Simulated assay, not measured.
Amino acid sequence: MNKQAINKLKFMLSSIIIRAEENVDFLKGVEISFKSGNREYKGIYDIDNKNLFYNGQNFKIELSELCDFICGEALKYDSLEFSLFERGKTTILMADNKNIKIKNIDEEISQNEKEHEWTNLKRNYYIKIGEADELLKAIGILTNDGKLKNDMIRKYNQIDHFVELIDSYLDELKDLDTINVLDCACGKSYLTFVLNYYIKEKKKKNCYFIGIDTSETVIENSKKIASKLGYKNMVFLKENIKNFVPDRRIDIVISLHACDIATDMALGAAINFNAKAIFAVPCCHRELLEQIKYEELQDIFKHGILKSRFADVLTDGIRGLLLEAAGYKVSIVEYVSPLDTPKNLLIRAIKVSDKNPKALEKYLAIKEKFSINPYLERYVLGML
């Protein structure tokens, strides 16, 4: 290639590599192919080890140095093709003395259509089998040959419906360069992995995930899955929610089935970190059951099951009201069918103001009426 073409190549290639450096957590690899006549010379660059295997040799080279290396080699050949592989996207640059072209290719389904046993579920899935097979296999939803496990149909529906319920809220964060997500009491991290895939590969947004849990076992397992999937934009920490201090801005806090006040800890962390959005599916409710005192309802509360159900409703209602007091717009919706699980409410909260004094007044009146002292209160009253 002549020097004029090389100068143009250097300008265009450097812009691709600069962007790649900014998104290095999402890079899978780089391939280079030089051509001279009918002969082709290929090179493969290993992002993690910063190693280029080319023309039978290994070169230790930084990603930032790759542009100069390629342009230097291009002087010896007639043309080249440079391919940058990212999660959900491939960028291809083709160059010769006549022209330089760049094309972007979104990852597509390997087959036009795939027949699955789950098609009778009659649902337009956000996390589609056929597109997300690598992910769904890694988290145990699919078998190694790509079939949906019978005992995971319910879990698959739950995680996909979670994505559906928060999809529009993700669009409200479109101005952020990177969406930072904290998963409190992450457990097996189903949601964390699914959202990572969906935000990056379907919504085409950069993202970063932090999963915290007190169980060493689940943290180590999540680390292994992240490594297997090549999800470098994730960290998993053995940590108590109460003690966690983030090293970056937190935009979204999620929590799925954190038991009793662990949900309140997650909500409280979101308030402390001034998160822009919160999505929590509570689990068991024990805290207020023994606290509630309301003489007018004693004839109803003498039936333990009714008092327990009332305590459940009051707990989540109080959570919504306290989040409103902290400046969030709150909706509480049915997450999945109660036939799947009785713990089927999703608390959605979007930050809209610094605080809401009227909501706080309403909360304090309810607190006095039922003689309760909810755990979440300490986070809200501490900021007002």
Rank of each mutant, 00 (worst) to 15 (best):
N2I: 07
K10D: 00
M12A: 05
S14I: 02
I18M: 04
R19T: 03
F26S: 08
F26K: 01
I32A: 00
F34R: 01
R39A: 08
N51C: 15
F53L: 07
Y54I: 09
Y54D: 03
N55A: 05
N58V: 06
E62C: 04
L63H: 08
L63Y: 11
E65A: 10
G72Q: 07
E73N: 08
D78A: 09
E81Q: 14
E86C: 10
T90S: 03
T91G: 10
M94L: 04
M94H: 02
N97A: 13
N97Q: 10
N97V: 07
I100M: 03
K101Q: 15
E108I: 03
S110G: 15
K114E: 00
N124A: 12
Y126V: 02
Y126H: 13
K128E: 14
I129V: 12
L135V: 00
G140R: 01
I141W: 01
I141L: 02
L142C: 10
G146V: 02
K149F: 05
K149A: 03
M152N: 07
K155F: 00
Q158D: 02
I166G: 09
S168K: 15
L170A: 11
D171P: 09
K174G: 04
D175P: 04
L176N: 05
N180Y: 06
N180G: 07
N180K: 14
V181S: 05
D183Y: 03
F193W: 11
F193E: 04
L195D: 06
L195K: 04
Y198S: 12
K205R: 15
K205H: 14
N206L: 12
Y208E: 07
T214S: 14
S222M: 01
L229G: 08
G230K: 11
Y231P: 07
K232F: 06
N233Q: 06
V235Y: 08
F236H: 06
L237F: 02
L237T: 06
K238R: 15
E239C: 14
N243Q: 07
V245S: 15
V245C: 11
D247W: 00
R248C: 12
R248Y: 01
R248H: 11
R249I: 11
A262V: 10
T263D: 10
L267D: 03
G268C: 12
I271E: 12
F273M: 14
K276Y: 01
F279Y: 13
R286G: 12
E287I: 11
E287S: 14
L289A: 05
I292D: 02
E295Y: 15
L297T: 02
D299F: 04
D299A: 06
L306E: 00
K307M: 08
K307I: 02
S308L: 11
A311L: 09
D312H: 11
T315E: 03
G317E: 02
L321G: 05
E324R: 15
A326E: 07
G327K: 14
K329E: 13
V330I: 03
V330S: 01
D340H: 06
D340A: 09
D340N: 08
P342S: 08
I350G: 07
F370H: 06
I372L: 11
N373D: 13
Y375N: 06
R378P: 00
L381D: 05
